[in-house]
Write a protein that binds this DNA or RNA. Structure first.
Length: 259
DNA sequence: ATGGTCGGTCTCCGA
């Protein structure tokens, strides 16, 4: 079973590149971030025609997450628990039925810049809520994945030029400590486990010819529960997508899970 | 050399 994450940076802008990648990569399930669309305006027919069930959790203008799945989904939940006043669409969760149930959490962790400030406070509070959800799922001993744009550069080796990110919300010590504490509960970073760095990136800025100079960072992550880590058959980063026509600034990251 | 690029949108804000 192939499960992927892809920050598409706008569904309207990616209406050609996303189907092209789906046809080539053929994932069973993909978690999308930054759909930048309300649910009613999402062009679901395009993807249903390719055999995908589409489940969106959008909002106007910014953010927004979604699932596209060729396998049946159940228990679909929208929104990260823990703050009823949070109106940002950054979390979607479902159980995918592939012989045995696997819970999939698609996430778009807040960017947090500028730091310090209210946006950084929101990032840290959001991470605390995510940790609570992860603790609950671990306690239940469920098979689950958390995957998406985590907006965290875990280590210096995950940036081509770490010095540039020294004061950035994606790399501040408190960001990395908070993220690491969550992983240390028992989650496996699938890409790091199978692709030891340095030089493994998932994002290249549109600015400053970052792609041409390979000035990338690794911020799109797939975190596996212990039960899923045992079934990890392969991981990949579809880096070539960044060099295609009208690319997103992120590329797809995927895992292959044994049946 | 304090710039540069995208996407979505009440032409600036978020990344």
């Amino acid at each position: 079973m192939k499960i992927a994450t892809f920050n598409i940076n706008g569904i309207k802008a990616r209406i050609e590149a996303l189907p092209a990648w789906l046809n080539t990569a053929n994932p069973d399930l993909v978690c999308l971030q930054e759909i930048k669309s309300v649910d009613e305006a999402f062009p679901r027919e395009v993807f249903e025609a390719l055999g995908y069930q589409v489940e969106t959790h959008g909002q106007k203008g910014f953010n927004g997450v979604a699932f596209m799945s060729k396998l049946p989904l159940s228990d679909i939940r929208r929104g990260l628990p823990g703050d009823g006043a949070d109106e940002q669409s950054r979390w979607i969760e479902a159980v995918v039925d592939a012989g045995r149930p696997l819970r999939v959490c698609g996430l778009y962790l807040p960017n947090g810049n500028p730091a310090p400030g209210p946006k950084y406070d929101y990032k840290l509070a959001w991470m605390a809520r995510m940790e609570t959800r992860v603790r609950d799922l671990l306690a239940a001993e469920e098979s689950f994945l958390c995957l998406g744009d985590c907006n965290v550069i875990p280590q210096a080796m995950d940036a081509a030029r770490p010095e540039v990110w020294a004061t950035d919300a994606l790399y501040l010590p408190e960001t990395r400590e908070t993220y690491r504490r969550m992983l240390n509960l028992g989650l496996t970073d699938a890409v790091r486990a199978r692709m030891p760095g340095p030089g493994v990136y998932t994002f290249w800025d549109y600015q400053a010819v970052a792609w041409e100079r390979n000035h990338g960072i690794r911020i799109d992550h797939i975190l596996c529960s212990p039960q899923v880590a045992d079934r990890l058959d392969g991981v990949g980063i579809d880096k070539d997508v960044r060099g295609g026509d009208k690319p997103s600034d992120h590329v797809p990251v995927w895992v292959d899970i044994a049946a």
